[in-house]
Amino acid sequence: MNNIEKLKDAFAEGLSIPVAAVNESLAYQGIAEWDSMAHMYLITALENKFEIAVETEDILEMTTYGKVCEVLVKYNVHI
């Protein structure tokens, strides 16, 4: 599985949406499924898929699909 697939899987799992619904326009509170609770699940899913530990300040940064990709670079995950 490549990184894009892993990322889409993490989004699908964390937000509980179909993989097909994962796209670059996703944003926190932009869809009903991406609420505060789902955000925690998303972070956990990202941590598991990429075997990383997300820092506190980054949790608040990861508010859009694009920003998640940007932050992941810090952890040597390149999408």
Binding site: S36, H39, I59, L60
Partner: peptide, 9 residues
């Protein structure tokens, strides 16, 4: 805004 958002802080 909620505690999960930078705006809140």
């Amino acid at each position: 805004s909620d505690v999960m958002q930078k705006e809140f802080w």
